[in-house]
Amino acid sequence: TTLHFDLDGKKLQYTGVSEEIARLVEELKRRGVDLKEIVRILEELLK
């Protein structure tokens, strides 16, 4: 799965993300978590 974000005018793309992580990101968005925080979490998970 590939995730795309537009953060402060920067286009971020994460490829090869598992379905689980993609679902987690969608859930965080639904809960109103700040996009910067979501990206920070995502980068930690993908290390």
Rank of each mutant, 00 (worst) to 15 (best):
Y14D: 00
E19L: 09
E26W: 15
L3G: 01
Y14P: 00
L45Q: 10
L45M: 13
E19R: 06
E20Q: 11
V39K: 03
D8H: 04
D6I: 09
R30E: 07
L3N: 01
L7K: 01
G16V: 04
I21Q: 10
K29R: 14
T1N: 11
E27Y: 15
F5S: 00
L24R: 15
K47H: 11
K10P: 02
V39P: 00
R30A: 12
D6P: 00
V33N: 06
G16M: 07
L46H: 05
Q13P: 01
E19K: 08
E19N: 08
H4L: 12
L46C: 04
Y14G: 00
I21K: 03
R40W: 14
E43G: 05
T15V: 13
E26A: 14
V39Q: 03
S18D: 06
K11M: 10
H4N: 11
D34H: 09
K36Q: 12
G9S: 03
Q13H: 14
I41W: 07
D6G: 01
L7V: 13
L3M: 05
A22M: 09
L3D: 01
R23L: 14
D6K: 03
E26P: 02
T2V: 09
K36D: 07
R40N: 09
L3F: 03
L35V: 14
D8Q: 04
G9T: 02
G32K: 07
Q13R: 08
I21M: 10
I38L: 07
G32P: 05
T2W: 03
L12F: 10
T15I: 10
G9C: 02
E44W: 15
D34P: 13
E20H: 09
V25T: 04
E43M: 05
T1D: 06
R23G: 12
V33Q: 08
R40H: 09
L46G: 03
E27S: 13
E20R: 08
L42H: 00
I21T: 11
I21D: 08
K11C: 08
T1V: 15
K29N: 08
L24K: 15
E26H: 15
E26D: 12
K11A: 10
A22V: 14
D6L: 09
L7A: 03
L45C: 07
T15F: 12
S18L: 03
L24P: 02
T2A: 05
L42E: 00
I21C: 03
V25N: 01
E44Q: 11
K36Y: 15
T15L: 07
